[in-house]
Amino acid sequence: MGRTSLKEVRQQEIILAFYKVAKKIGLENASIAKVADHLEINPSLIVHYFKTREALIEGLIHFILERYSDIYKTNGGHYTTAKELTQLMDNLFSRTWDKLFDDSVFYSCYALTYRDKKIRASFKSLHDSLRESLRDALHKACANGVIQLRNEKETAEVIFALIEGAYYYLGMVDSPTENTRKLNMMKRQALTLLGL
């Protein structure tokens, strides 16, 4: 494993600052100048690492992917028992996602996919990668005899759609009790698909 370069470290610092600024004032109001103010550096240093705001948004989308990918690593990613797979579903259908990344920044990035082809491609790559991680988890569980599925890819697609739909839909539910009840209902549907 190679050492992380100073450039990579600096880029991660800038992306994290961009995320914090976007979380505080909204992605639409976050600019290179405001990120520079937050970091107390000259804006030209940010431009040195990210030529445009769009490049910074692409970096933010990769940051989202890294954060969300952590959910699949919680159990070591082996899926040799039903408990490990159930824990993955518990994590996917929980407020764990919210702790990893702010919903308002996520959906602001998502909205940009309708206006910018490059950002759309980056966001699609993020979603493809997350679906592939879920499919890989289901494949491992099948290979280990934990579950039996006719079509791992299709099952992963349906569960991923349940997850995405749940978070979009439940973003409008103000009651924490009702939110938890509905999230658990959707998780039970996913577990039923898996035969758990």
Rank of each mutant, 00 (worst) to 15 (best):
A156T: 00
K117S: 15
Y79M: 06
D90H: 10
D102Q: 08
N151H: 10
A137I: 04
V146W: 03
R181Q: 07
R181S: 06
P176R: 00
E178N: 04
I159E: 01
K124A: 15
K118Q: 14
L149D: 01
D98Y: 15
R188M: 14
L92I: 02
T177C: 06
I119A: 09
D102S: 09
E157T: 07
T177Y: 11
Y169S: 11
T81M: 08
Y107L: 06
I163G: 02
M185I: 08
E132Q: 11
R188H: 09
H127R: 09
T86K: 15
K153S: 14
F160A: 09
N144P: 12
Y79S: 02
R131V: 15
A141G: 03
E164H: 07
G171I: 04
L134N: 02
K182R: 13
S108R: 09
G171Y: 08
S94D: 03
T177L: 08
G171R: 00
A82T: 04
K99N: 10
L170A: 02
E154M: 15
R150W: 12
G165N: 01
K187R: 15
A121L: 13
Y167E: 02
A161E: 02
M186I: 14
T96N: 05
D174Y: 07
Y167Q: 01
W97K: 04
D90K: 06
N151V: 05
Y114I: 07
K99C: 06
V146L: 07
V146H: 05
D174C: 06
D98C: 07
A137P: 11
A156K: 00
A82G: 08
R135S: 15
K117P: 10
R131H: 11
I147N: 02
K187L: 12
L112Q: 05
A161D: 04
L100N: 00
K83M: 07
A121V: 04
P176V: 02
T177Q: 13
Q87C: 10
A143G: 04
F101R: 00
A82L: 08
S94Q: 03
E132L: 12
E164K: 09
I159Y: 02
D128I: 08
E84V: 06
V105K: 01
A82F: 04
N91F: 12
F123L: 02
W97E: 06
D128R: 01
D103T: 07
N184Q: 10
A143N: 04
E164D: 15
Q87M: 11
I163N: 03
L112V: 03
D116C: 09
E157V: 12
F93M: 03
T155Y: 08
R120E: 15
L92T: 01
K117Y: 10
R135L: 07
T80G: 15
